[in-house]
Amino acid sequence: MQPAYEARSLSRWELAGKQVPPLVTQIADGENGGVMMNEFPPKFMDVMRECSGSDVPAMGATEYLEHLFAMGIKETDFPAAQPIHQKRIWDRFTPSAANASKLPAIIEALKKEDHRFHMDGGSWTNDISWVKGYENVLGPMEKASSLFYERVLKRKVAESDPRYRNALFHLLCSQTSCFRYWGQGTWTDYGRELCRRAESIVIHDFK
């Protein structure tokens, strides 16, 4: 809900010589800040009523991009974006099959040169590692996801197959960041159990 109020305070931006309204999005699902638990659905309903028919409408990212493309803006007009510090990799590494084996050594060298450099993925908190101290839940998450890829996606199982939908449902339930950000204890136990169920379903249904 917060993006709606921020969007009202912003002016149009110039993109490819055209004035376009910016799209403001939630950084995550809001759950980690207690938004979903404490403000949904009443505040969501309030915001939707306020936005409807206004000059700051609610809009999905895909819908927003479609409007930009309809204005004549192309993908090549968008500014490039990449994770912080990632440029250091490309300064030393040229992607190619021949160079692939060199990448791990380059990454390790960069880690030793600067403690801020890592390949753990982004965190909306910035000062809290997404990985350190949570291997006991992130490991099962990765295992369940990898198993789904190997036994379901690679085999091109039809998305309409009830087995596919059941396995995907359990996999997605197991992948939420809530199992990481709420700390060790009950939430990590929930996460590991959902990963176990997702893994068991894939193994049982896709032998």
Rank of each mutant, 00 (worst) to 15 (best):
D114I: 00
E135V: 01
M119C: 13
C178S: 10
N166Q: 13
T188M: 12
M119F: 13
G183R: 08
A97T: 01
W187K: 02
A98M: 08
S160F: 05
R196V: 00
L147Y: 05
G185E: 15
L171A: 06
F148T: 01
E108M: 08
R165T: 08
S146E: 14
A167F: 05
R155V: 01
S177F: 09
T186Y: 15
G121E: 11
S160L: 02
F169A: 10
T188G: 03
T125K: 15
P104S: 08
A97W: 13
W187G: 00
S129I: 01
P162M: 06
W124Q: 03
G133C: 08
R116V: 06
C195M: 09
A158S: 15
Q175W: 09
I106D: 12
R151M: 12
T125W: 15
D189G: 07
K132Q: 13
L103W: 09
L153Q: 13
G133L: 08
W182E: 05
S146Y: 10
K156E: 13
M119N: 14
E150V: 00
E108K: 12
A105Q: 14
K112I: 05
L194H: 07
H118C: 02
L168K: 14
T186V: 13
A109K: 14
W124C: 01
L153R: 14
E159L: 03
